[in-house]
Design a binder for these strands. Structure first.
Lengths: 192, 192
DNA sequence: ATTTTTAATGAACAGTTGTTCAATAAAAAT
DNA sequence: ATTTTTATTGAACAACTGTTCATTAAAAAT
């Protein structure tokens, strides 16, 4: 019932080769042919496992997302103040991105397809969804959760995008302060 | 000092051919070769004007963005209530996307590179930046505008993404109501 | 109207892509 | 240990890519 050893070997070779190539050239310039040459895998075999180079990369991303999920689920002391819980959650996100900075640099690259962005989006969005249950405005009748979730999720991704553009120079502490400041400013949003 | 007529003719042929092909197949599957065949342009000539098929598409997008800019700049009666001004601005964005729905369906496709997303992002972000001057929290000392702008811009793009995922079935009025509701909910954000 | 400049063409090249198929080799099942 | 199943290989194919270069044709400048 286990997976054929050859399959594992082939896929690992390809993934390893991709990592090696990524050290010297951008993802978008890596061809299937050169990947196979380096991995000592027949090019025909490649297509038995992946459709394109992105398929190989995506596998890595799935591992990273899994790690993300685990570190996010880790319990912490939840206060009754929603903003403090938010804060604790966001710190986790920032730490995760920092941890895999090399990958996120690729994901946010303008030549890369939206797939990866959406993968990250959906992950964070599912986190948000869980948190929503403990939130104070769950009673709101005339609000579609879908829009609220996508709004808030993508807002956070906006912070990450800006972080990326500033080449990850902003510290996590600083990032956190900014987020808090933004949230309290939006508090004034409707009054101004 | 004017541009050579041949250049204009060639580029127009290619753009027109792209539009035709887009009616029957997704952007990502259109090859340079077939585009040139349809446009009656030598493939070598193509490379004198564009690097890839996306280059041709991007030209269209630039025209669309220009139209966006113009419709956004149109004056309207600004109230003293920031949220009402926001509302009027957002309606413009929604209308624009609806107007060019066929294009935005492509731009938000997961196979498409992030470039287009960023182009839209930067456009909306520049609108936001203008508006920021009249906003009540400009005095805030310890906040970096860059992060605030990216946060708010991408939040709006989150709404657009959700709209896209729901196949643009939500009406603009409904969309607007949702946005207002979200903004007032975020008002509670820090208190909960 | 003629000359000059510049764009478009066609042909050719090595390399990549995606697919098929018979032959081989390696793992799994007995 | 032998058989059965399944993955990998290598070769071949047509089509696409990105580039070069001499030739042709069409605009622009005079």
């Amino acid at each position: 019932m286990k997976k054929d050893l050859r399959i594992i070997k082939t896929q690992e070779s390809l993934r390893h080769a991709l990592l090696t190539l990524l050290k010297s050239k951008p993802l978008e310039t890596i061809t299937i042919a050169e990947l196979c040459r380096l991995a000592n895998i027949n090019r025909g075999t490649f297509y038995l496992h992946y459709r394109d180079v992105h398929g190989v990369f995506k596998h890595y991303l799935e591992v990273i997302i899994e790690d993300f999920r685990q570190s996010y689920e880790e319990p912490y002391y939840k206060t009754n103040f929603h903003i403090q819980n938010i804060k604790a959650d966001m710190v986790k996100i920032f730490h995760h991105v920092k941890k895999y900075q090399d990958f996120y640099q690729i994901i946010f690259d303008e030549r890369i397809p939206m797939t990866y962005y959406y993968l990250l989006f959906d992950t964070i969005r599912s986190f948000m969804k869980e948190n929503l249950d403990d939130s104070p405005w769950m009673g709101e009748p005339n609000i579609k959760l879908e829009y609220l979730l996508s709004y808030q999720t993508n807002a956070i991704l906006g912070i990450l995008m800006e972080w990326h553009r500033q080449e990850y120079k902003t510290s996590i502490q600083e990032l956190n302060q900014q987020l808090i400041a933004i949230l309290s400013i939006n508090n004034l949003f409707t009054r101004g």
